[in-house]
Design a protein around this nucleic acid. Structure first.
Lengths: 263, 263
DNA sequence: AAGTGGTCTAGACCACCTG
DNA sequence: AGGTGGTCTAGACCACTTT
């Protein structure tokens, strides 16, 4: 197959149906062919961007973007004048908390089944606290769902989600709900989830939640208070949960100077 | 001043000393001139990449990278066929935990002074646990520093840092230490900090640490267990700390699908 | 159809590191 | 000095959204 390429007047043979970006294809090729295969091991350098560009028949700009995304993923570290040094592979099985996935998905990837019990739905007008959090007016209708999440029958978390009507029609949420509001939002066409800002705080459980989780009063838990934003900047959901640390351990990769001077 | 530019044979007038990347300059210009100034408010779109390119006299590729970094910072959200929609400004004063900065820096930015008390240094051979964490051999010398961190005299955290000799000479660390090992590592030329992987866990404080922090036995605290990696893939530091939630609140921005399909 | 972002190229020059 | 990454450009075409 022949594809007309950019630039004054060049023609290049490409068998690539442009379904996925070349950048991503090349990133995966480098990861699989060179890193995971062990051809280049931790501490060694990848071939230069120039030679990779020739090898994969792409421009250096494209290869460069691939290498940068390998760096974003923590597989290599690129240094000026030196090259892309392969990093030691990250400890497995510790899921990054910075990935926005539901506890259900989180558990499934770890081979555990997360179920919900004592599910209670409530449709009511927003009070001041909810209105502030969701960025809606007091009195606007919201749908609240509370439930206990369990792993293999053992309680692990108490969840309270509050969703505004503007985010998703209530009947759709209730119909498609399988334990995680987030999964419904992520799966639903027409809803574009951008990110979630989660505040973390260790707390001693009060009597009410301790009882629900079946632990003693005062047990330490992680309280997470999070709002999920759409790509339009609209607050989709306010999630609060109290999580026991037994079954889920979170890790966060912290990087220098994120916020000022992004690349 | 005239600078020879890329491309077949063009010449362009530039008064810009190329100290900081154009991409970053333009990112800041867009942020300050258009977003923070309120010219474009939440929900509205930025001018098109094409017009921004003309406005700032840069190529679309460059402007595009600036806009992407604004998206990375959460200021805008870019949608194909639509444009860059300005997001509502993030709640202030909640520092992102995903930024790798010391508690001292963290506090300074919030207008608080973090001090260290009861500092104790110990140089000793690595035991099995330390060796595993730091990726060194059992018996290799490590430097450990424990201390209590306070805010305005109130204890907020108990820190235990362990550093390998290969990371930084011990005498330099001790000489430049001002309360945070991380700050020494970040400031020291020749040491390139790549990132830190931090495991988070809520715990009920045991008698020992509760006494040090001056709180009751069983008080909920956030236990953080983290290793800091250099750009060479070498473990620089193992930090453990127990943090009371009163003075510091952490937030993490979680994004969908990070890990597969990076942009 | 028009406009906006998404992807990609070839070439050029600069900054940094190492022998 | 020579190689490697760092930055930037102008142009081209594709995909998506809106009118």
């Amino acid at each position: 197959m022949t594809r007309r390429l950019p630039g004054p007047s060049h023609t290049v043979r490409l068998r690539r149906p442009p379904r996925t970006p070349l950048v991503d294809e090349i990133r995966d090729l480098i990861a699989n062919d060179l890193i995971f295969s062990g051809v280049v091991t931790a501490g060694d350098r990848l071939p230069s961007e120039k030679s990779l560009a020739e090898r994969y028949g792409a421009s250096r700009v494209t290869v460069r973007a691939s290498v940068r995304s390998l760096q974003d993923a923590g597989l290599v570290n690129v240094r000026n004048g030196v090259g892309a040094v392969v990093m030691p592979l990250r400890r497995a099985l510790t899921h990054g908390f910075d990935r926005l996935v539901s506890l259900e998905t989180f558990g499934r990837e770890a081979g555990k089944h997360v179920a919900s019990r004592e599910v209670r739905w409530e449709e009511r007008p927003a009070d001041a606290a909810v209105a502030e959090r969701l960025g809606i007016a007091i009195g606007d209708p919201v749908l609240m769902v509370e439930r206990l999440k369990t792993v293999d029958g053992t309680p692990v978390a108490w969840f309270v989600d509050t969703v505004a009507a503007s985010a998703i029609p209530f009947h759709i949420l209730r119909a498609e709900f399988q334990g995680a509001v987030l999964d419904v939002l992520l799966a639903h066409p027409g809803v574009d989830v951008a990110y979630e800002d989660a505040d973390l705080e260790p707390v001693n459980l009060d009597a009410d939640i301790a009882r629900r989780l079946g632990v003693r009063l005062g047990t330490a838990a992680l309280r997470v208070d999070a709002v999920t934003l759409s790509t339009d900047g609209v607050v989709l959901e306010w999630a609060q949960f109290w999580l026991l640390p037994e079954h889920f351990r979170f890790s966060v990769r912290r990087r220098p100077q994120v916020g000022r001077g992004t690349r």
